[in-house]
Measured scan of single mutants.
Amino acid sequence: TLFEALYDYEARTEDDLSFHKGEKFQILNSSEGDWWEVRSLTTGETGYIPSPYLAPV
């Protein structure tokens, strides 16, 4: 399942991933609570992002 960003987000740590509203992601790991490890389909980068900022496509 692909997810889309509902809002912009600016990374706060080196493990976070900055992204823009509308960017699409592949979920790599969603078992860590509200922070999911994802791969951006736009940039190819991986990192953690807050799951409340995402919605299924």
Rank of each mutant, 00 (worst) to 15 (best):
A55F: 09
P52T: 15
K24F: 11
E14H: 12
L2R: 04
T13L: 10
L2D: 04
I49A: 14
A55T: 13
I27P: 01
E4F: 14
G44P: 00
S30N: 12
K24M: 13
T43P: 00
S51C: 10
S18T: 09
H20P: 04
G44Y: 06
L41V: 09
G22T: 02
S40C: 06
W35R: 15
Y7K: 09
A5Y: 01
G44K: 05
G22E: 01
Y53M: 11
E32M: 14
E4V: 15
L28C: 05
G22V: 00
Q26N: 06
Y53K: 04
E23G: 02
T1R: 11
V57T: 08
E23F: 04
L17E: 01
F25P: 00
A11V: 02
A55I: 13
L17S: 02
G22F: 05
V38Y: 03
D15A: 13
P50Q: 11
L54D: 02
L28Y: 03
S51E: 04
K21I: 08
R39T: 06
L2Y: 10
T13C: 14
S18I: 04
N29S: 11
L2N: 04
I27E: 00
T46H: 09
A55E: 07
G22I: 00
L2F: 10
L28E: 02
L28Q: 02
D8E: 07
E4T: 08
L28F: 03
D34M: 13
F19M: 08
D8W: 05
T46A: 07
T1Q: 14
E37T: 08
L54E: 02
A55M: 10
E10V: 14
R12M: 12
T46N: 05
Y7I: 11
A55K: 13
S51M: 09
I49N: 00
Y53C: 12
L28W: 02
E32T: 12
V38S: 01
I27N: 01
D15E: 12
W35N: 07
N29T: 08
D34C: 15
S18Q: 05
Y48H: 08
G44N: 08
T43F: 02
E14A: 13
I27A: 04
E4Y: 15
D15Y: 15
L41Q: 06
L41N: 03
I49Q: 00
R12K: 13
G44L: 07
D8N: 09
T46S: 09
F25G: 00
T13P: 05
Y48C: 09
R39M: 12
E23L: 01
Y7R: 11
A5L: 09
S31Q: 11
A55G: 10
D16M: 14
P56A: 09
S30R: 12
V57Q: 06
D16T: 15
P52Y: 15
V38C: 09
D16P: 02
Y9P: 01
Y7A: 10
A11G: 12
D34F: 15
W35C: 10
G22N: 04
G47V: 03
K24P: 03
T1V: 13
S30T: 11
V57S: 08
D16Q: 15
E4A: 08
S30I: 10
Y9L: 04
N29A: 08
Q26P: 00
P50A: 09
P56Y: 06
E37Q: 13
S51Y: 12
G33V: 10
D34W: 14
F25V: 02
L17K: 04
F3A: 05
E14C: 13
E14I: 10
E45D: 09
N29G: 10
Q26D: 06
H20F: 13
